[in-house]
Simulated assay, not measured.
Amino acid sequence: MKKVAVVGYGVIGKRVADAVNLQDDMNLVGVCDIISDWRIQTALEKGFAVFAATKEADEEMQSAGISVAGSMQELLEQVDLVVDCTPKKIAAINVEIYKKRGIKFIVQGGEKHETTGHSFSAENNYNSALNLDSTRVVSCNTTSILRTLTALKRADLLDYARGTLLRRATDPWESHLGGIMNTMVPEKEIPSHQGPDAQSVDPDLDVITAAVKVPETLSHMHYWNVKLKKKATKEEVLDAFKTSSRIKLIHYDQGLVSNNTIKEMYLDMGRPWGDMYEVALWEDMLKVVGDELFYAYVVDNQAIVIPETIDAIRALTGIESDGQKSIVKTNKSLGIN
C-alpha cells in the first residue's frame, strides 16, 4: 500500500482523491488546500484527513470549525507520493518542496513538460514512467489526442493528423465568475499548444492542432482529419479504436447528438458528477474516404485525466510494472467497461 497525498482539492484534486480512495494498492493519507468553504467541508464528510497548506489557511480552517489534521509539511512526512492539483503558480513552488524532500510527485497538464522531464499517457508510455521521481499527466485535450492517435498508430494506420478543438470557456462550477458570452475566440497561434504537447509524450506523432474557445462549459469537442498510411475500411479504423479501453464509441442516431446529451447519459449511468473518463467518439459520424479519415469526439475536461493519474501513481511507485494490468485495474475501480 503506497501512501498518497493530494495537494489542491479543486476540480481535479477532489476527483483524484476519490479515485485513490477506491484503489486497494494505495492509501489516501490526506488532502491539502487553503480553502475553508463547502469544498473542504465535503472532504471531511467523506472521511478524508484535511491538512492546511499555510499557517494562514490553518487559522481560517480552525475558525470555520474544520478539524485540521496538520500542516502540509506534516502531511508530506507521511507519504510516498504527492499528486499536485494546484494552480500553475502554486504548483511551481510546491515542486521545489517535493524535490528537496525527495518525494515522488505528479503534476497536471497545466505545467510545462520541463517541470518533470516526463509527460504521461497510460496507453502510450507507461513503461517509461516506471520508478521515476516525477511525471506530468498531460491535459484533458492532449490525453484525448494521444488515446485516439496512439490507437491508430498501433494498427499501423496513422500517417499524420490535423485537428480542430472547440474548447469550453471555463470550468462549470466557475461559470458565474467569468467566461465568454455570445462570441467565439480563436487561439492566435497554429499549432495550438495541444499538438506540441502530444509530441512531448510521442515525438514521432505528426500532429497539428488549432483551437477555438466557445461559450459553453460542459466539455471540449474535437474534429479530426487523419491521413492514413493506406486505404482502409471503416471497420479497420473502428477495430483500431476498439483496442483502447478508454475510447467509448457512441451513436448520433441514438440521441447522443450533443455534449449535453452525452453528459446526461453518464449521469444516468450513475457516474460521480456524471464524469466521462473515456473519449466519446461518434461511430456513425466517422467517415473513411480512401486513405483519409474524418471523426469527431467529446472530451470531459474534468474527468478524462483521472484514470491516467491513478496509473501514473502505480508507474512512479513501481507497485505495478505492467501498464496493461494497471489500466485494467483502474478501469474496474472507476466503472470503465
Rank of each mutant, 00 (worst) to 15 (best):
R101N: 13
R101G: 13
R101H: 12
R101F: 08
G102D: 10
G102H: 14
G102L: 13
I103A: 04
I103H: 04
I103Q: 05
I103W: 02
K104M: 06
K104N: 12
K104A: 14
K104Y: 07
K104L: 09
F105I: 03
F105L: 04
F105V: 06
F105A: 01
F105M: 07
F105E: 00
F105K: 00
I106W: 00
I106Q: 06
I106N: 03
I106S: 02
V107F: 05
V107E: 04
V107C: 13
V107R: 01
Q108L: 15
G109V: 12
G109S: 12
G109E: 05
G110T: 08
G110P: 03
G110W: 10
E111Y: 09
E111I: 03
E111P: 02
E111W: 04
E111T: 14
K112M: 08
K112A: 11
K112S: 14
E114T: 13
E114Q: 12
E114L: 13
E114N: 12
T115I: 14
T115H: 11
T115A: 15
T116N: 03
T116S: 01
T116I: 06
T116M: 03
G117W: 00
G117S: 10
G117T: 11
G117C: 08
H118C: 08
S119Y: 04
S119F: 01
S119C: 13
F120P: 01
F120W: 06
S121R: 14
A122E: 10
A122W: 09
E123A: 10
E123T: 08
E123K: 03
N124H: 12
N124M: 10
N124A: 15
N124K: 11
N125C: 08
N125V: 02
Y126R: 13
Y126N: 06
N127S: 15
N127C: 09
N127A: 15
N127P: 03
N127Y: 05
S128G: 10
S128L: 12
S128R: 13
A129E: 07
A129F: 02
A129N: 07
A129G: 15
L130I: 10
L130R: 00
L130W: 00
N131H: 05
N131C: 09
N131P: 03
L132H: 01
L132Y: 00
L132R: 01
L132S: 01
D133F: 08
D133A: 07
S134K: 00
S134E: 02
S134I: 00
S134T: 02
S134A: 15
T135S: 14
T135H: 07
T135Q: 09
R136G: 02
R136P: 01
R136L: 15
R136I: 11
